[in-house]
Write a protein that binds this DNA or RNA. Structure first.
Lengths: 232, 232
DNA sequence: CATTATTGAGGACATATGTCCTAACAGAGA
DNA sequence: TCTCTGTTAGGACATATGTCCTCAATAATG
């Protein structure tokens, strides 16, 4: 992660998302812009958390790793989103791993400064309150989704999320096979079963498997299968 | 639900839970105490939400009903807990049904009054922020729990929750059979499978089934099976 | 009291998913 | 090039859970 020391750029991002009002003057000098490459880890589960970030551009995915080493995807998020809010409020270590799915820009600020300058600033409190309740609401839904629908549906949903690049309207429709094991963990199933479902999708003509890649052929059909897309 | 018009009682509950500081003077006249009988619905999913409640005594359960009519238990909660907070912040209809498991006392206040008098009062904002982030954190865990563990474990967990009366140390160890279908829905499985698992538990000597009741015999064994108890 | 309706437990089978193992294939070093 | 080794897809089987149906016990009714 690279810090970009350009207060004007910070300001322009704040303005672009109507965020100027949630921060007071006192905190402004402590806001900074950060950039992450695609694939980079923004936060790692279990690490002490020192920063709160506001995602202003790009796409991230959030996942958790259980004691037994299983990983489970929690969600994909695009701007505007806050990262590290729970940890900030609860004063706990990072609870989930956050990874940049695309190139990502975030406005970051240290917990200590935030506490010092905005802890009593209601617009800020109201802002994260809004964000967190929305997160909670979505999690509510995704939990039901996960409990009620089979892997087939979750995979379709996942594929749609991963192969789409929001910023431009183009998407590759390709998915590297290298990390199929990861993918399995992410949607909460076994590698074996993932393969089964992929094979199913292939023979249904929804996708094709070739040397190290999966090519999505019928995006619409995937959307139909996915129904409501939880991973967004 | 019955309103108890006794400002002094409200004050004493607030004091008992160190809640005086989260409300300002202006809102005080609008706080009122409410009482619910065991089994009574406090909030119903889909209804407009007008009140925010602070649970000060007793135990509640929160569940959701899907479009297809399936119900899924979300959690059990004891004091201190806030009910209707998400709805208050997001200004949406009630998202989950809340039911009194025991006799319940709550301090209630109308959204409109809260908005008018405490919307800029940081101690209050900080308080619900704390509560909601904690909820979020727990939901995070319970989601993993639900995805990772079989019905057996969830049932054990459920039984422990339902048959225990926090307030006193006595518990009945009995569970009415009348609502086994409900129970199945609540832990996210079918009635058929629930029966299977109960039968299993019976033949393992953990419980006994008799005329309309289930009697829990080996609470410790259930605890072992449940591991971390998500429904609390 | 006999008969019918209701309800709850469980049998039979289907499906989703997990575990373990194997075969095919690709890349690395001799 | 040949062999070794690691990786990946898929076979075989086990387990968890869902669906549908039946049977028995109980309650309701004539």
């Amino acid at each position: 992660m690279k810090e970009i020391k350009d207060p004007k750029l910070v300001q322009s991002y704040l303005q672009a998302h109507q965020l100027e009002t949630i921060f007071n003057e006192a905190i402004m000098p402590y806001l900074s812009l950060y950039h992450c490459e695609q694939g980079e880890l923004i936060l790692s589960q279990g690490e002490p958390s020192k920063y709160l970030y506001v995602l202003v551009k790009g796409k991230i995915k959030i996942y958790t790793t259980s004691a037994e080493g299983k990983t489970l995807i929690l969600s994909f998020k695009s701007a505007i989103e806050v990262i590290g809010d729970i940890e900030y409020v609860q004063e706990i270590d990072t609870i989930n791993t956050v990874e940049a799915v695309s190139s990502v820009y975030m406005i970051g600020v240290q917990h200590t400064n935030l506490k010092k300058f905005t802890n009593d600033f209601s617009p800020f409190l109201q802002f994260i309150l809004k964000i967190i309740t929305e997160k909670f609401y979505l999690k509510n839904n995704s939990m039901s989704f996960n409990l009620m629908y089979p892997v087939e549906v979750r995979l379709a949903s996942y594929l749609l999320s991963v192969t789409q690049d929001d910023n431009e309207s183009l998407f590759t429709g390709q998915l590297s096979t290298t990390s199929l094991t990861d993918t399995a963990n992410l949607i909460g199933t076994s590698y074996r079963h993932l393969n089964r479902v992929i094979k199913q999708f292939c023979s249904d003509g929804l996708m094709e498997r070739s040397k190290g890649f999966i090519l999505i052929k019928d995006r619409e059909a995937l959307k139909t299968i996915a129904g409501g897309n939880i991973y967004e």
